[in-house]
Design a binder for these strands. Sequence first.
DNA 1: CGCTATTTTGAGATGGCTCAAGCTATGTGG
DNA 2: CCACATAGCTTGAGCCATCTCAAAATAGCG
Lengths: 235, 235
Amino acid sequence: MHEALPAAWPDLLASAELIGDLAVEERAALWTAARRGAAPRGSVLFAAGDEARHLYLIVSGRIKLLRGNSDGQEVIVRLIGSGEVLGGVAVLPRSLYPATAVALDDVDMAIWSRDALAPLLEQYPRLTTAILALVTRRMGEVQSQLQDVATERVARRVARALLRLAGQLGRKEDGGILIDLPLSRQTLAELTGTTLFTVSRLLSGWEAEGLVEVGRERVVIRAPHGLARIAEDLP
Amino acid sequence: MHEALPAAWPDLLASAELIGDLAVEERAALWTAARRGAAPRGSVLFAAGDEARHLYLIVSGRIKLLRGNSDGQEVIVRLIGSGEVLGGVAVLPRSLYPATAVALDDVDMAIWSRDALAPLLEQYPRLTTAILALVTRRMGEVQSQLQDVATERVARRVARALLRLAGQLGRKEDGGILIDLPLSRQTLAELTGTTLFTVSRLLSGWEAEGLVEVGRERVVIRAPHGLARIAEDLP
DNA sequence: CGCTATTTTGAGATGGCTCAAGCTATGTGG
DNA sequence: CCACATAGCTTGAGCCATCTCAAAATAGCG
């Protein structure tokens, strides 16, 4: 059942989240236990409430982690790019995924089943600590988002989201930072707790001011400083 | 420097969060490493951004965990009652508290310094797993709150908060469930991302309908089912 | 009994939502 | 290669849930 990892991956991922901090031996053990996986654009890796059986490390492609409420509205908890880990809960026995993961792109990834992981966690306790560090960092991020949605107005939330995304998934382009991901108005709205209409209006305004350049599922930040002025309490 | 724990505590806390799942030996080791602490109403246990040096287990009293933004607005991330653990980040070296902890009551607690904890974590790897489970559960809760604030209207958020608090800190009273904590309109507002005025109006309305009974820093739920009707999509 | 913190209530303003209509890329099948 | 279908986006108009600010009532505390 184990499909070997491409030989190139270990190099690519030596700097990845979670793995980067481990000792050589621990890394090697991880690579041995991993299998390779792929998911086409739009596919669901797992749904909220599913039993958490797998831990994922994204090699290429983007994923959105979201929660939907009873009447169909969705909130994106996090966007995940290459080098990031997904499904940390899976190291705990009998745990459930708290959110749904959907591929925004075609995705390549390394996958560990809980069964493959369990003996490693026994043998290398630092693995558990590394995952705890991961979950803890994310906790801070989610708290931060909660704070934003609860206390800031929409313009500021959207500006912050764009800057955050630029840092996480941004790519330098001629005269700006491209947010390298199919980012629709709807997605941005779900990320910031507003509607696609409001996002559209904001972006149009900012484009007129020369802060950003927008297109279909595409945002380029032209003046990060100007956006930061909206995002924070600056003059 | 170690102030012994009162002899009665180990019994009290055998069922506490985190400790309840451990083996007898592990618990004993924990008790030995703990010291006792107290904090008066209103005091700050730690502030957001402080280096995380201590792990707390609340024995009696309540605590609010909050984050404040630049212009003084605050969001309560979680309310914590007896038997609950606070400051799980402290098991990670060089970590910072992501939120501020303030005592709402006079508080009694068991405290572990990181230094005291470190050797235990080495010796009993299951401790780390237990803390990971803790942080993971909380992650789900915070995500849930984020989802609420981002997608639901205020009435529903407040109703849900009341029901959640009733479950977590509720005490049966004659003809209702008292939320056993000094719960001002302001606190409820910070918990749900709204203003004290809106909370006041909602509670007045619900009192008129016989759903709750309110007083100064006090809420008693008279008709949980009625509140649940507001909190969920029911007839 | 007076001081202070909490709460209530009113009146008015408004940010953001809803809904409707039209527009524009993008891709597709004839 | 064109024309049509589709998904994404923009814009306008109106509304309303919630916030803001002001003032007064209430409750606990020293």
